[in-house]
Each structure stands twice: as structure tokens, then as C-alpha cells.
């Protein structure tokens, strides 16, 4: 956190709106900086959440695919071919889901960064 004297009341304070605007701006920059500093721990818990989401996503689609395969196999009596086929489809779907989640998280992070920069300026 940097303190330049421009944002201290008293120092160079001529009471005009211009100096008020300058002090406000400096205060805003400082707050923005502080928020950026806090993003360290916040980012960690968010990253943990993202990891958990990826893990669940990866398992869920494989489970669903395998389940569909088992049910169809029982119904049509084609053990084990549809199970194998739908297991593979489930794997592909899982990676697709993870890819989409990654894109989504990426976009969100970019938007947050852009919003943070706009606030900081």
C-alpha cells in the first residue's frame, strides 16, 4: 500500500472540488489495491472449488454413460457390447464437460480481471 501525500487531508488541500476528486481517486486506487491483495486467499478457495467441480464432472458423465450401457444391455440382451460403447461415450462426454467448464471458468476469470481493472483506474 502506497501513501502519497496527495490523498492526505491537510496536505495541499485547497478545498476545491478538483483536489477532492484527486483524493477520492487516490483512495479508490488504494482500496482497489487492497482488494487485489485479498484476492490471494480468495483465489485459493475458488481454485479449490473449481478443482472439486472438475472432479465431480469427470466422474458423473462416466457413471451416467456406464449406467445407460448396463440398462440397455439388460433390456436388449447384448452384454457386454453396449456397456463398453456407452462407457467410452461417457468418457468422451466427461472430457467435453470438463472442457466446457474450463472455458466457463476462464471467461469468468477474464471478466473479473477486466472488472477489477476498470475499478482500479
Amino acid at each position: 500500500m502506497t501513501h502519497d501525500d496527495g490523498d492526505r487531508p491537510g496536505a495541499k488541500d485547497d478545498g476545491s472540488l478538483e483536489s477532492l476528486a484527486r483524493r477520492l481517486q487516490a483512495a479508490k486506487t488504494r482500496r482497489g489495491g487492497r482488494r487485489g491483495g485479498a484476492a490471494g486467499s480468495e483465489g485459493r478457495s475458488e481454485a479449490m472449488g473449481a478443482g472439486m467441480r472438475v472432479a465431480v464432472e469427470l466422474v458423473a458423465a462416466v457413471l451416467v454413460g456406464t449406467g445407460i450401457g448396463i440398462v440397455l444391455d439388460k433390456w436388449l440382451g447384448t452384454q457386454p457390447w453396449l456397456l463398453i460403447l456407452f462407457f467410452l461415450i461417457g468418457c468422451v462426454a466427461a472430457f467435453l464437460n470438463v472442457y466446457r467448464l474450463g472455458q466457463r471458468l476462464d471467461r469468468e476469470a477474464k471478466e473479473r480481471r477486466a472488472a477489477g481493472q476498470a475499478k482500479g483506474k
Partner: peptide, 20 residues
Amino acid sequence: PVELVSYLSRPVSLSVRLFA
């Protein structure tokens, strides 16, 4: 089929995440 399985996995991942 891939998109179908991906769509059907939504309720599973939604519920497993909260439960886990």
C-alpha cells in the same frame, strides 16, 4: 450420444457435488 450423455450427467454432477 456424447451430448446426450453430457446432458444427462447434469443432475448427477449437481447432486453429487452438494452431497459430497
